[in-house]
């Protein structure tokens, strides 16, 4: 059974149908890349998976458990959704770090707030805090940012900020980590450091969905590629096959823009 099963997701904004009956599956440890032209619905799909947008139809299952179903209103209450969110992590195109917190505090904040809701937090406050801090420091080290732990976001480059954002998402141990064009807001010379981190995550079998315009990265790193156009998945398959030998005419046209 696939870790993530998404079926029949549709979403319309006013009169435009942005997602049309999208289904996809994702195995544990698998990394898929979603490619497609601007406006094809990639961001909207990730936002639906992370419950930032409410899909009109469809169903989202993780590990066989129905997290969300358009037909079951009780899966859609705010408190239910809040618990289920944590199956997913989302890294934004423009980082969205919290400016008033240091890199370390950004990584720790959500974990601390969750720990405070646990019974027995008061008694073990010191130990829990120390564990969270250690974990956050380890994550920052993994991102190559040990020496930036006490910097505020505005003191970091875009690439560094994005790596802090990745550490912040990883700190909550999501089952599936989603990236929405993680390098699009970066200067070209800074994309490499973020892509390197993503390569490492993929090598460690992190389950990921990566929306990207970096075709050669997608080809090398993703296990599978989905090509979206006009709110539908036009083509999907093993990464190298889709990039090197696209079956659909629309995929070919799209890839032609990237010099394939």
């Amino acid at each position: 059974m696939a870790l993530l099963e998404v079926s029949g997701i549709s979403k319309r904004f006013d009169s435009t149908e942005v997602l049309k009956d999208i289904s996809l599956e994702l195995e544990k440890g698998e990394a898929i890349a979603i490619i497609g032209s601007s406006g094809s619905g990639k961001t909207t799909l990730l936002r639906c998976l992370n419950f930032l947008e409410t899909a009109d139809t469809g169903c989202i299952k993780v590990g066989g458990e129905t997290l969300w179903d358009a037909k079951l209103p009780h899966t859609q209450s705010e408190s239910e959704i809040r618990k289920k969110r944590l199956h997913f992590g989302l890294v934004f195109q423009n980082f969205n770090l919290f400016p008033q917190y240091t890199a370390l505090q950004n990584v720790m904040l959500a974990g601390e707030l969750l720990a405070k809701e646990q019974p027995g937090y008061k008694a073990n406050k010191k130990r829990i805090h120390a564990e969270l801090e250690q974990q956050a420091r380890d994550l920052l080290a993994q991102m190559g940012l040990s020496d930036r732990a006490d910097h505020y976001p505005h003191q970091l480059s875009g690439g560094q900020q994005q790596r802090v954002a990745i550490a912040r998402a990883l700190a909550l141990h999501p089952d599936i980590l989603c990236f929405d064009e993680p390098t699009s807001a970066l200067d070209p010379e800074l994309t490499g450091e973020v892509l390197r981190v993503l390569r490492e995550l993929a090598a460690n079998n992190t389950t990921m969905i990566i929306v990207t315009h970096e075709m050669s990265f997608a080809r090398d790193v993703a296990d599978r590629i989905l090509f979206m156009d006009g709110g539908v998945v036009v083509e999907q398959g093993p990464a190298k096959e889709v990039i090197d030998h696209p079956k659909e005419e629309r995929t070919r046209q799209f890839l032609a823009h990237y010099g394939n």
Binding site: N50, K83, F92, P99, A110
Partner: peptide
């Protein structure tokens, strides 16, 4: 808006987002 969304995605409640993320800004 991304500040609120980042908080939501990290599983924070509305009031946690207001007091821990938005208020000081």
């Amino acid at each position: 808006k991304g500040q609120t969304e980042a908080g939501q995605v990290l599983g924070m409640t509305r009031s946690q987002i207001f007091f821990k993320v938005t208020l000081l800004q």
